[in-house]
Design a protein around this nucleic acid. Structure first.
Lengths: 254, 254
DNA sequence: TCGTGTGAAAATGTTCACAGCT
DNA sequence: AGCTGTGAACATTTTCACACGA
């Protein structure tokens, strides 16, 4: 089984965003070439990426924007809603909580956590989840959420499970030196997905322990993705000094 | 000339961070295997990545932490300072401005810009650049910067060039629908590096124009890097639904 | 005729085995 | 003996050419 390139998944996210822009512009149909131009990849790449997941077009015609958008939304798992907690409500956590766009994709914040006493008890507006992914409806009014101490995370998670609102993901926006222990708290609370904003890698194990430390059971099926600004800044510095090493974007644009 | 994998550059950033952690822990020497374990890649990968840039180790011995750190710092262009402006001082821009870690790598904010009248004229603390990359000195006290209107960016850039403080990079933290025009403002001000936080791709051309639009001269040598949290959220959703498609991390850890 | 879908070719990136230095 | 550095084997990813359906 060959598997699907990781990069293809990221590109799919881009194609979906472009389809939404096309839909807002009332465009009904498109083609691999048109998508390629806007996504800064080749038309071959677009067709191959889509082919990993199915056949969504019509030969000779192209793609129907609404159909392809629906299919990619389904493929990416964005046609269901995801209950999210944020751990770390400093400036970055607050920016994430308010970031527009997350709620449109059914990422709904259900809990906010920190350890700093001056933050605990503070109320923060968070956007409500949309009912439909259509994108045409009005945004519902925001709700208020109280910042809780992280020691209460496990209880909260248990309670959410009780009312069929299990927490799906935790977004980690704590300083790097606390990222590992905060991640451990998420895992102990039974949360299986972590989006790590801290500039450090989370080790999928309970203890710093010896080198050959086994992955512990509770970490077994936990998925971690990293989003690190500092890497972006440093990559930019590198490529500004070494522009010849940057891969050019392809020619074909029709 | 074969070229260096883009992914290798990102991994180099990770190795450098690990070396800093080792230095803080008073570790004097390390090995490809030890770095590999912490970076979640194979030891082969570490050695190959380092080999793209030179020979930094001693056979039979390993690497001297301070030497490898110095060399990677140089390779990544982090031994010089970079003058940065931020465009878009909403919550995300503010979080970026205060993000600790940026100033340690000689990213120094010299200007802040927005278009919203209620933000213009506000003063924001930004960390001062460190003189040395050593990481052992005290952090200098923060400075205050006034948020300016983006229409004044070109003049400001000109003025900075006049005093040998040319702006090297612009960090773009505006809403996606304004990202292209804000990027255009950066380019018109002569800024050659853009770190785009908006969930949209910047097109390296002046006009939305026709499909085969040429890359205009002013965009010719502009480098753009993207940091998009929404992609991270959506990738996480995808891999939680399709865990079998996630590439495992390697065995070798010694 | 047009543009998708796809097997095959080419390019790229990763893993490996081992030579070579300490 | 131990660990780096590297050419060669291998695997993956991208590019391409073209068959096929509308």
């Amino acid at each position: 089984m060959p598997g699907i390139p990781t990069a293809a998944v990221s590109r799919l996210v881009t194609y979906l965003r472009i389809l939404e822009e096309l839909e807002r512009a009332q465009t009904l149909t498109t083609s691999s070439g048109a998508l390629a131009g806007r996504a800064q990849v080749s038309a071959f790449q677009v067709r191959k990426d889509l082919a990993y997941f199915g056949r969504f077009g019509t030969r000779g015609m192209g793609y129907t924007v609404s159909v392809l958008k629906r299919e990619l939304t389904r493929v990416l798992g964005l046609n269901r809603s995801w209950n999210v907690v944020i751990v770390g409500m400093g400036r970055l956590g607050q920016a994430v909580a308010h970031y527009p766009g997350a709620s449109e994709y059914q990422f709904g914040y259900v809990g906010l956590f920190d350890v700093k006493t001056e933050l605990i008890g503070k109320h923060v507006d968070v956007p409500a989840q949309r009912e439909q992914v259509s994108g045409l409806g009005q945004a519902p009014p925001p709700r208020q959420l109280r910042i809780e101490h992280i020691r209460d995370l496990a209880d909260f998670a248990q309670q959410q499970r009780g009312c069929q609102q299990a927490i799906d993901m935790g977004f980690l926006a704590v300083p790097p030196e606390h990222a590992q222990s905060a991640a451990q708290s998420l895992v102990e609370a039974g949360i299986k997905g972590i989006l790590n904003f801290a500039p450090t890698l989370i080790q999928p194990r309970s203890k710093e322990g010896g080198p050959l430390q086994e992955i512990s059971d509770e970490w077994r099926d936990v998925m971690v993705e990293n989003v690190d600004f500092l890497v972006g800044m440093k990559r930019l510095a590198f490529y500004m000094l070494n522009p010849q090493l940057k891969d050019q974007d392809p020619e074909e644009r029709t």
